[in-house]
Design a protein around this nucleic acid. Structure first.
Lengths: 219, 219
DNA sequence: TGTACATCAGTGAACGCGCGTTCACTGATGTAC
DNA sequence: TGTACATCAGTGAACGCGCGTTCACTGATGTAC
């Protein structure tokens, strides 16, 4: 008889079914895309009737939001763990790539084509900020060896997103470049745009990373 | 009585209806996303019955493929026009950004979340190669002022995608970085991930472009 | 110029499907005395 | 420990909807003599 805090058996059962539903949801997304996600189909897969799932999710929208939340949470935790283990920004980058390759559909649920009209709830955008903060922390550890750019100046006056972070605007710039460049390589790779081109996407990723962390003028 | 080559009135009418269908398709994509695209809904919008559209498209799949083809074609033409007017790579970059902002959904139809199981026909991938070739041409005009990298060496032996292009691998590397970096900024901007952050996405785009074209060590 | 015929755009009915969601219900599980 | 009750997971039927697609058809447009 395991004990998990003060959770009752029923609560534990509920939680277990919820996660099971979500697992099937991810499988379905991987098979047919996020837009084809269907509560009825998940229920059938689990050997349940369609309406049964309404005991666990208010509806299709809540399930999707929950998946998005989990995806963000997972990435934030990955970054958090990397930071806790004292990794530098290079480690963070590889953690990101590993995380993305582990489940491309999860990556695209966050960073892929936006759903028209969908707006993530506040707690989800809060996790996004947490991710950004971890990236900023990591970039703060980089040597300040880059010449100042006009964009740094712009950032110095437009940094709402990092108002509670002490990093100078050069660091903010670094973090943004990290984000956009790594996302650029990763999303094209995961979408298959490099297929048949011949080169190894991992090496392109590494090259972009080098350009970000390496000396201002690589030898 | 206008004359367009040897096209008959019926042919012209068919072509006109086809483009009208596609226009409504784009509107629908902008409103509800590509996955919600429905032939019946388009027919209704045009004041036609559902089956009428089967005179013009074999089915939903052919319509979507056609939209993707048009999207690629449009970008290839944009690049072609920019190149023809003697623009350098900076001009190409801004042409890309303008093209993307002009219709974000069109951009995402090409570079967004891939549809599981969908495979673009050969003529579409040919247009993609055409786009890549234009980018390579433009990058060939850049000064060769970058230090050689390990990835350059890798590319020298893995360049199937540019086999018929005379550019050295350093140029290929340049083109790939262009592609991935600009896509990185653009796709995050279009998806709204910079919303509320405060800075101007156009300036981040410009900064990334500067890093690509500017001196190896910016003053 | 007029008539006979072929082409083809568009219709309406129909098929089968799966969706999200609600509702009244059964039956099992847990709780209180 | 046993009994009465409340909670709640899950069911099956139903509603209304829209989808892609086929089919036999009508009626207008174009073509050939």
């Amino acid at each position: 008889m395991p004990e998990t805090g003060t959770t009752t058996p029923r609560e534990r059962y509920r939680a277990q079914v919820r996660t099971e539903v979500k697992e099937h949801a991810w499988e379905q997304i991987a098979t047919a895309g996020a837009s084809a996600l269907s509560l009825n189909a998940i229920a059938k897969q689990m050997g349940l009737s369609g309406p049964a799932l309404y005991r666990y999710f208010a509806g299709r929208d809540e399930l999707i939001t929950e998946l998005i939340r989990d995806a963000y949470r997972s990435l934030a935790d990955t970054f958090g763990a990397a930071a806790a283990s004292g990794t530098d920004v290079t480690g963070l980058a590889h953690a990101l790539r590993d995380w993305a390759l582990e489940d491309p559909h999860r990556y695209f649920l966050i960073y892929g084509t936006p759903v028209p009209g969908y707006h993530a709830p506040d707690d989800v955008t809060a996790i996004a900020s947490e991710i950004m903060a971890a990236l900023l922390d990591a970039c703060a550890g980089l040597p300040d060896d880059r010449p100042a750019t006009p964009f740094d100046a712009h950032l110095a006056e437009h940094r709402q997103w990092a108002d509670d972070h002490p990093a100078p605007s050069a660091t903010l710039h670094r973090a943004l470049s990290f984000w956009t460049r790594l996302h650029g390589v990763l999303s094209l790779e995961l979408a298959g745009h490099f297929n048949g081109m011949g080169f190894d996407p991992a090496q392109l990723f590494a090259a972009e990373l080098d350009a970000l962390t390496g000396p201002p003028q690589a030898s």
